[in-house]
Design a protein around this nucleic acid. Structure first.
Lengths: 115, 115
DNA sequence: ATCATACTTAGCCATTTTCCTAAGTATTCA
DNA sequence: TGAATACTTAGGAAAATGGCTAAGTATGAT
Protein backbone atom coordinates (compact mmCIF):
# COMPACT_ATOMS: atom_id res chain seq x y z
CA UNK A 1 0.00 0.00 0.00
CA UNK A 2 2.96 2.27 -0.22
CA UNK A 3 1.40 4.52 -2.79
CA UNK A 4 4.45 6.38 -3.94
CA UNK A 5 6.60 8.00 -1.33
CA UNK A 6 7.82 4.89 0.35
CA UNK A 7 11.07 6.59 1.26
CA UNK A 8 9.24 8.90 3.66
CA UNK A 9 7.36 5.88 4.99
CA UNK A 10 10.64 4.21 5.79
CA UNK A 11 12.20 7.26 7.39
CA UNK A 12 9.23 8.01 9.63
CA UNK A 13 8.84 4.36 10.56
CA UNK A 14 12.54 4.17 11.35
CA UNK A 15 12.27 7.16 13.67
CA UNK A 16 9.15 5.87 15.42
CA UNK A 17 11.21 3.72 17.76
CA UNK A 18 13.12 5.04 20.79
CA UNK A 19 16.01 2.61 20.38
CA UNK A 20 16.53 3.74 16.82
CA UNK A 21 16.28 7.42 17.74
CA UNK A 22 18.87 6.80 20.46
CA UNK A 23 21.14 5.28 17.82
CA UNK A 24 20.72 8.33 15.59
CA UNK A 25 21.48 10.41 18.63
CA UNK A 26 24.70 8.55 19.22
CA UNK A 27 25.72 8.71 15.56
CA UNK A 28 25.11 12.43 15.40
CA UNK A 29 28.18 12.69 17.64
CA UNK A 30 30.33 10.64 15.29
CA UNK A 31 30.69 7.16 13.75
CA UNK A 32 30.59 4.03 15.89
CA UNK A 33 30.99 0.29 15.56
CA UNK A 34 28.18 -2.21 15.98
CA UNK A 35 29.33 -3.14 19.49
CA UNK A 36 29.63 0.48 20.55
CA UNK A 37 26.12 1.13 19.35
CA UNK A 38 24.83 -1.99 21.08
CA UNK A 39 26.47 -1.34 24.45
CA UNK A 40 23.89 1.07 25.97
CA UNK A 41 20.93 -1.08 24.96
CA UNK A 42 19.93 -4.08 27.02
CA UNK A 43 19.13 -6.13 23.97
CA UNK A 44 20.44 -9.19 22.15
CA UNK A 45 22.77 -8.42 19.28
CA UNK A 46 20.47 -9.70 16.52
CA UNK A 47 17.67 -7.46 17.76
CA UNK A 48 19.90 -4.42 17.65
CA UNK A 49 21.17 -5.42 14.25
CA UNK A 50 17.59 -5.37 13.06
CA UNK A 51 17.29 -1.76 14.16
CA UNK A 52 20.50 -0.84 12.39
CA UNK A 53 19.25 -2.55 9.24
CA UNK A 54 16.08 -0.52 9.37
CA UNK A 55 17.92 2.74 9.78
CA UNK A 56 20.24 1.82 6.94
CA UNK A 57 17.31 0.75 4.78
CA UNK A 58 15.75 4.15 5.33
CA UNK A 59 18.96 5.79 4.19
CA UNK A 60 19.58 7.47 7.54
CA UNK A 61 22.89 5.72 8.16
CA UNK A 62 25.52 3.86 6.15
CA UNK A 63 28.07 1.28 7.17
CA UNK A 64 31.34 -0.17 6.02
CA UNK A 65 33.10 -3.25 7.23
CA UNK A 66 36.77 -3.29 7.95
CA UNK A 67 38.25 -6.47 9.27
CA UNK A 68 35.67 -7.95 11.54
CA UNK A 69 34.14 -4.73 12.75
CA UNK A 70 31.46 -2.75 10.99
CA UNK A 71 31.33 1.01 11.44
CA UNK A 72 28.17 3.04 11.10
CA UNK A 73 27.96 6.67 10.07
CA UNK A 74 25.10 9.11 9.85
CA UNK A 75 24.11 9.87 6.30
CA UNK A 76 24.68 13.43 5.22
CA UNK A 77 21.49 15.43 5.10
CA UNK A 78 19.73 12.37 6.46
CA UNK A 79 16.60 14.23 7.51
CA UNK A 80 16.15 16.41 4.46
CA UNK A 81 13.14 14.46 3.16
CA UNK A 82 11.46 14.96 6.51
CA UNK A 83 12.33 18.65 6.62
CA UNK A 84 10.98 19.07 3.13
CA UNK A 85 7.74 17.35 3.95
CA UNK A 86 7.30 19.38 7.11
CA UNK A 87 8.03 22.51 5.14
CA UNK A 88 5.35 21.71 2.57
CA UNK A 89 2.94 20.82 5.31
CA UNK A 90 2.87 23.95 7.26
CA UNK A 91 5.51 26.32 6.11
CA UNK A 92 7.16 25.64 9.41
CA UNK A 93 10.41 27.21 8.34
CA UNK A 94 8.69 30.47 7.72
CA UNK A 95 6.73 30.12 10.90
CA UNK A 96 9.82 29.43 12.95
CA UNK A 97 11.69 32.33 11.38
CA UNK A 98 8.70 34.53 12.17
CA UNK A 99 8.83 33.41 15.76
CA UNK A 100 12.53 34.17 15.95
CA UNK A 101 11.83 37.58 14.52
CA UNK A 102 9.09 38.22 17.06
CA UNK A 103 11.40 37.14 19.82
CA UNK A 104 14.20 39.41 18.61
CA UNK A 105 11.78 42.29 18.35
CA UNK A 106 10.67 41.69 21.92
CA UNK A 107 14.25 41.59 23.14
CA UNK A 108 14.99 44.87 21.38
CA UNK A 109 11.92 46.45 22.90
CA UNK A 110 12.87 45.24 26.37
CA UNK A 111 16.32 46.66 26.01
CA UNK A 112 14.98 50.00 24.85
CA UNK A 113 12.80 50.07 27.97
CA UNK A 114 15.73 49.11 30.14
CA UNK A 115 13.72 46.17 31.57
CA UNK B 1 7.05 -3.87 24.06
CA UNK B 2 7.01 -0.12 23.80
CA UNK B 3 9.36 0.63 26.67
CA UNK B 4 7.81 3.92 27.57
CA UNK B 5 5.46 5.37 25.10
CA UNK B 6 6.79 8.75 24.27
CA UNK B 7 4.87 11.33 22.36
CA UNK B 8 7.51 11.28 19.64
CA UNK B 9 6.96 7.57 19.08
CA UNK B 10 3.32 8.23 18.39
CA UNK B 11 3.92 11.18 16.12
CA UNK B 12 6.53 9.45 14.00
CA UNK B 13 4.44 6.28 13.80
CA UNK B 14 1.43 8.35 12.80
CA UNK B 15 3.39 9.98 9.99
CA UNK B 16 4.85 6.72 8.72
CA UNK B 17 1.74 5.98 6.69
CA UNK B 18 0.93 7.60 3.33
CA UNK B 19 -2.81 7.68 3.98
CA UNK B 20 -2.26 9.54 7.22
CA UNK B 21 0.20 11.96 5.65
CA UNK B 22 -2.35 12.63 2.92
CA UNK B 23 -4.90 13.41 5.62
CA UNK B 24 -2.51 15.86 7.29
CA UNK B 25 -1.97 17.34 3.86
CA UNK B 26 -5.67 17.87 3.39
CA UNK B 27 -6.13 19.31 6.87
CA UNK B 28 -3.29 21.75 6.39
CA UNK B 29 -5.64 23.46 3.95
CA UNK B 30 -8.46 23.71 6.47
CA UNK B 31 -10.86 21.60 8.59
CA UNK B 32 -12.89 18.79 7.07
CA UNK B 33 -15.54 16.27 8.06
CA UNK B 34 -14.98 12.53 8.30
CA UNK B 35 -16.65 11.90 4.96
CA UNK B 36 -14.68 14.62 3.23
CA UNK B 37 -11.47 13.13 4.54
CA UNK B 38 -12.55 9.64 3.52
CA UNK B 39 -13.62 10.53 -0.02
CA UNK B 40 -10.20 10.44 -1.78
CA UNK B 41 -9.22 7.15 -0.19
CA UNK B 42 -10.47 3.87 -1.56
CA UNK B 43 -10.94 2.39 1.87
CA UNK B 44 -13.77 1.24 4.13
CA UNK B 45 -14.92 3.83 6.63
CA UNK B 46 -13.78 1.95 9.75
CA UNK B 47 -10.29 1.66 8.30
CA UNK B 48 -10.08 5.38 7.68
CA UNK B 49 -11.48 6.05 11.12
CA UNK B 50 -8.61 4.05 12.51
CA UNK B 51 -6.17 6.39 10.78
CA UNK B 52 -7.94 9.43 12.13
CA UNK B 53 -7.88 7.95 15.63
CA UNK B 54 -4.15 7.43 15.34
CA UNK B 55 -3.53 10.99 14.22
CA UNK B 56 -5.73 12.29 17.01
CA UNK B 57 -3.99 10.03 19.52
CA UNK B 58 -0.67 11.50 18.46
CA UNK B 59 -2.05 14.98 19.05
CA UNK B 60 -1.69 16.00 15.43
CA UNK B 61 -5.38 16.64 14.90
CA UNK B 62 -8.47 17.28 17.00
CA UNK B 63 -12.13 16.76 16.31
CA UNK B 64 -15.52 17.93 17.46
CA UNK B 65 -18.88 16.47 16.73
CA UNK B 66 -21.85 18.60 15.77
CA UNK B 67 -25.07 16.83 15.00
CA UNK B 68 -24.11 13.69 13.19
CA UNK B 69 -20.97 14.97 11.53
CA UNK B 70 -17.54 15.13 13.06
CA UNK B 71 -15.10 17.80 11.94
CA UNK B 72 -11.34 17.41 12.12
CA UNK B 73 -8.81 20.22 12.48
CA UNK B 74 -5.03 20.27 12.44
CA UNK B 75 -3.54 20.91 15.85
CA UNK B 76 -1.63 24.13 16.20
CA UNK B 77 2.13 23.64 16.16
CA UNK B 78 1.45 19.96 15.53
CA UNK B 79 4.96 19.19 14.36
CA UNK B 80 6.92 21.11 16.95
CA UNK B 81 8.09 17.98 18.82
CA UNK B 82 9.46 16.61 15.56
CA UNK B 83 11.09 19.87 14.64
CA UNK B 84 12.68 20.07 18.05
CA UNK B 85 14.02 16.57 17.86
CA UNK B 86 15.45 17.17 14.42
CA UNK B 87 17.07 20.34 15.70
CA UNK B 88 18.75 18.55 18.58
CA UNK B 89 19.85 15.76 16.33
CA UNK B 90 22.01 17.55 13.96
CA UNK B 91 21.66 21.22 14.46
CA UNK B 92 20.16 21.19 11.04
CA UNK B 93 19.19 24.80 11.23
CA UNK B 94 22.74 25.83 11.85
CA UNK B 95 23.98 23.47 9.21
CA UNK B 96 21.54 24.78 6.67
CA UNK B 97 22.42 28.37 7.46
CA UNK B 98 26.11 27.46 7.13
CA UNK B 99 25.44 25.94 3.75
CA UNK B 100 23.62 29.04 2.64
CA UNK B 101 26.53 31.12 3.84
CA UNK B 102 29.03 28.95 1.99
CA UNK B 103 26.94 29.21 -1.11
CA UNK B 104 26.71 32.98 -0.85
CA UNK B 105 30.44 33.21 -0.31
CA UNK B 106 31.06 31.14 -3.41
CA UNK B 107 28.73 33.32 -5.46
CA UNK B 108 30.53 36.42 -4.25
CA UNK B 109 33.89 34.91 -5.12
CA UNK B 110 32.70 33.90 -8.57
CA UNK B 111 31.38 37.37 -9.19
CA UNK B 112 34.68 38.93 -8.09
CA UNK B 113 36.47 36.66 -10.55
CA UNK B 114 33.99 37.51 -13.25
CA UNK B 115 33.35 33.80 -13.87
C1' DA C 1 46.81 -24.19 14.51
C1' DT C 2 43.75 -22.65 18.02
C1' DC C 3 40.91 -19.72 20.18
C1' DA C 4 38.50 -15.42 21.09
C1' DT C 5 36.10 -11.58 18.97
C1' DA C 6 32.68 -9.35 16.17
C1' DC C 7 29.35 -9.76 13.80
C1' DT C 8 25.62 -12.74 10.80
C1' DT C 9 22.02 -15.89 9.66
C1' DA C 10 18.12 -18.74 10.63
C1' DG C 11 14.08 -19.54 12.75
C1' DC C 12 10.51 -18.99 16.26
C1' DC C 13 7.00 -16.40 18.97
C1' DA C 14 4.02 -12.60 20.85
C1' DT C 15 2.09 -8.30 19.79
C1' DT C 16 0.67 -4.62 16.82
C1' DT C 17 -0.91 -2.84 12.55
C1' DT C 18 -4.03 -2.40 8.79
C1' DC C 19 -7.40 -3.79 6.45
C1' DC C 20 -12.09 -5.93 6.11
C1' DT C 21 -17.46 -7.07 6.91
C1' DA C 22 -21.45 -6.77 9.64
C1' DA C 23 -24.22 -4.66 12.74
C1' DG C 24 -25.38 -0.62 15.87
C1' DT C 25 -26.38 4.36 17.29
C1' DA C 26 -27.62 9.00 16.71
C1' DT C 27 -29.44 12.83 13.67
C1' DT C 28 -31.89 14.83 10.15
C1' DC C 29 -35.27 14.75 6.44
C1' DA C 30 -39.84 13.75 4.33
C1' DT D 1 -43.11 7.83 12.15
C1' DG D 2 -40.05 5.81 8.81
C1' DA D 3 -36.06 6.18 5.99
C1' DA D 4 -31.67 7.99 4.90
C1' DT D 5 -27.26 9.81 6.49
C1' DA D 6 -23.01 9.95 9.13
C1' DC D 7 -20.51 7.97 11.78
C1' DT D 8 -19.29 3.94 15.51
C1' DT D 9 -18.41 -0.48 17.50
C1' DA D 10 -17.22 -5.33 17.34
C1' DG D 11 -14.62 -8.74 15.79
C1' DG D 12 -11.51 -11.16 12.76
C1' DA D 13 -7.67 -12.34 9.17
C1' DA D 14 -3.00 -11.41 7.10
C1' DA D 15 1.23 -9.29 7.46
C1' DA D 16 4.67 -6.54 9.73
C1' DT D 17 7.36 -5.58 13.92
C1' DG D 18 10.40 -6.39 17.69
C1' DG D 19 12.12 -9.40 20.63
C1' DC D 20 14.60 -13.97 21.59
C1' DT D 21 18.00 -18.32 21.26
C1' DA D 22 21.10 -21.12 18.79
C1' DA D 23 24.35 -21.80 15.53
C1' DG D 24 27.49 -20.06 11.74
C1' DT D 25 31.31 -17.22 9.44
C1' DA D 26 35.20 -14.33 9.05
C1' DT D 27 39.19 -12.01 11.23
C1' DG D 28 42.77 -11.12 14.66
C1' DA D 29 45.67 -12.57 18.41
C1' DT D 30 48.76 -16.16 20.52
Amino acid sequence: MAKYDSHLDQIFAALADPTRRAIMDRLSRGPATTSELAAPHDMAMPSLLGHLAKLEGAGLITSTKSGRTRTYTRTDAAFMPVQNWLGQQSDLWTRRLDQLEDYARQLAKDRANGT
